Computed example of a mutant assay.
Amino acid sequence: MEMEEIVEEETSGKHENMVEITVKTIGPARPSRLHVPSSIKVLDLRKLIARKNHLPVENLKLILQGKVLHDRADEDDIYVRFNDGDSLIVAVKPKAPVGLDIDDDDEDLKFQLPQSTSQWKKKLYSFLRNRMKLPDIVLMAIFSLGLKAWALIILWFTLAPIAHKLDLGPLYILGTGFCLIFLNLGRRQPGDVSAYSIFNEDFRELPGTLNADAIDRDIRTGQF
């Protein structure tokens, strides 16, 4: 049984309206007509087009009104709504040569949350990215910080107006800078070399260094 007939049977009991759309495949193929429900999952639409045109479903990219259709967002299926006469563009990505793992999908170059991220963070990420249109570098900065860092940032902005009213704005900013410097100094572990040692491979003393060895050497040579 054809996939199109299956879709029609599944949606007949739901009283879905069927619409006719034009499917244009990039390449020498001619445009074709396709009857689909007015509202359908992108994943089901991808499988329907792949089965009807004998195309690899994993290499299909669907474009509607200049926007790429994605199957899922934040672990939820995405639905697409069609009007009668809409045009859908289908692009088929070429397969990578044997032995090479090449992926030209631009989505892999964007910031993505790990699979173990909580649901509320995924919802917030979807809102900031899709609704607020924040760039990936801003999203990376937002979701890379922990709760402690965000608490300190909120505290800093809360105290900033108070420092401004007390005419302590410059001191407040300078104090913040020094705190950031001292908090990020870190501690050298036993056995680690210092930053100065990078430029002093032989660990030679600086001229004029006064230590116990220099004093002992001066006494033995009669210079002290």
Score class of each variant (00 low, 15 high):
K95Y: 06
E107R: 09
Q115W: 04
K95C: 05
V19Q: 10
D84N: 15
E20F: 10
L45M: 10
Q115A: 11
L55Q: 13
L109G: 05
A50Y: 01
I89K: 08
S118D: 13
V42K: 11
E75R: 15
F111P: 08
S118F: 01
K14L: 11
R72T: 12
T22R: 14
L43T: 14
Q119E: 13
V92Q: 00
I89D: 05
P94I: 10
T11L: 03
I49M: 02
H70L: 08
N59A: 10
F127W: 00
K41T: 12
E16P: 04
P94Q: 11
R33A: 14
G99P: 11
S116A: 12
K67S: 09
L109D: 10
T117P: 00
R33P: 08
R72M: 10
T22F: 13
L64P: 05
D74N: 14
V57I: 03
F127G: 00
N59K: 07
E20G: 07
P56C: 09
K24I: 14
A50N: 00
V57G: 01
E58K: 00
D103Y: 11
V23S: 11
T22I: 15
K123Q: 13
L62T: 02
D101I: 15
L64N: 10
Q115R: 07
P94R: 08
W120N: 05
N53H: 14
I78K: 15
L34T: 04
E75M: 11
